[in-house]
Nucleic acid binder design. Sequence first.
DNA 1: ATGGTTGGTAGCCAA
Length: 263
Amino acid sequence: MRIATWNINGVKARLDGALTWLKETSPDVACFQEIKSLTEAFPKEPFEDLGYNLAVHGQKGFNGVAILSKRPIDEVAVRGLPGDDGDAQARYIEALVPMGRGIVRVCNLYLPNGNPIGTEKFTYKLAWMKRLKAHIKSLLALEEPFVVLGDFNVIPDPVDAKNPQAWVEDALFQPESRAAYREILNLGLTDALRTCHPGSGIYTFWDYQAGAFQKDHGIRIDHILASPQAADLIVNAGTDKFTRAWEKPSDHIPVWVELEERA
DNA sequence: ATGGTTGGTAGCCAA
């Protein structure tokens, strides 16, 4: 089965593009970030017409995440990242979807950007990552297949940027951000895209400004991390870079993983 | 090269 993630940067602005992408690539599960929509304002019908079930966790104007699944969504396990009841930002949703004889848990996140560094935004990013680590640790104890995927807003390594030096003052490439990401990975998760494409030059984001896409000044910040039980099933992973060349593109492109289905 | 562009919203904020 194919599970994909895409920061669409506004569901209303990207409605046509998102529908075209779903029709062309037919993921079984698609996770969106930055829907920038209230839950009740999400345009569900055109997606349902393509055969998708939806679980939406939105907020007004900013953030917002959604899970679309051609298979039944057995349960929406979590809305909002656990660990801080005072955090109202809609950046996390988790659902259970049938796979093979069992289920796969899909954990869709939009990790805080954290810029500019030296502000409460960066503090919030690091605190959010600490909460994410704790939550993933609890999921690993279940010893089940799951994927944690979405816009992590972290450039893991220099190889994940065309021009790493351009990002040294950015929250996405701070040593603290990278260390927190590494701690999560080192709990025992597998970076699906890295595993299938170990080389350099794979990016998932190009800024709208200064012709970044034309110059291929990209970074890899959208990730799919697999639990050990899911990593055993990885067949392939990749990106849908063609969407970035469309009219009115998102600044991110989709990332997907193909998991072997064992009946 | 301290600029540049986009989305959501209603003035700027977030990215």
